[in-house]
Nucleic acid binder design. Structure first.
Lengths: 114, 114
DNA sequence: GAAACGCTTGGCAATATTGCCAAGCGAAAA
DNA sequence: TTTTCGCTTGGCAATATTGCCAAGCGTTTC
């Protein structure tokens, strides 16, 4: 792998890493319906204010969300909406896995090859 | 957030986490052109055989790839090809970020709002 | 059978991530 | 100006990830 390519893969992995956390993923999906302030997130999940803020910072650094300070509040919004599409793909991975797991445990009604 | 939802987000985050590593991302993209054996990966990147094997195990556990042992070799292939689409979205995040960075450093030829 | 091959697993030290508490900080309200 | 509000940052301990070496294990070749 060339050094240049390596950098590219590191950059892409960093974006994915930002999304690879339950809370952050939840935040991103939540932003589908429009911008939210930090306090809204803090209210909805049971976590310290600082924790929420740090998660949002991670998403911001990754370039996934953007912030906008208006008055007392800071509003976060999705910067690259296509991330939502690909979360659907992740769900496809999960359902493929679930189906397989069912067939392994013999709980499925899978068709037998004779 | 409901406990059931929480589980769901944890599961999705786990899939993303599996992809969130430069080497594993590289492997997944490399599998676009068809199945590869462990030795091919080990040869292409400069890493221990065991390291390669462990990365592939992570991808397998996540349900992203599948393995097939034939003769001496184990062949890995993509199980859910849609992951490739969403890597393109990650690249969109990167290019959005790059563009912005250019404009911040004044190196761009961005159109000025007057 | 013995040796070689291709790969996986155990173990472990180095490193990174996470989430809480406490402290800081700018804008707005008093 | 002082206080409050909304949020960010520093610090830190608990936890997870990473990648190497060494050892194990099933096939195939000799």
């Amino acid at each position: 792998m060339k050094a240049e390519d390596k950098k590219f893969f590191e950059a892409k992995a960093a974006v994915l890493k930002a999304l690879a956390h339950p809370t952050r993923l939840w935040m991103v999906e939540h932003l589908e319906s429009g911008e939210k302030c930090v306090c809204e997130f803090a209210e909805l999940i049971d976590a310290d204010f600082s924790t929420v803020s740090k998660h949002l910072t991670v998403l911001k650094q990754a370039g996934i969300v953007q912030d906008d300070k208006r008055g007392k509040q800071v509003y976060y919004s999705l910067k690259v909406p296509c991330v939502l599409n690909f979360i659907h793909c992740v769900e496809a991975v999960l359902s493929a896995r679930a189906k397989e797991h069912l067939s392994m445990t013999g709980l499925s009604d899978r068709p037998q090859n004779k």
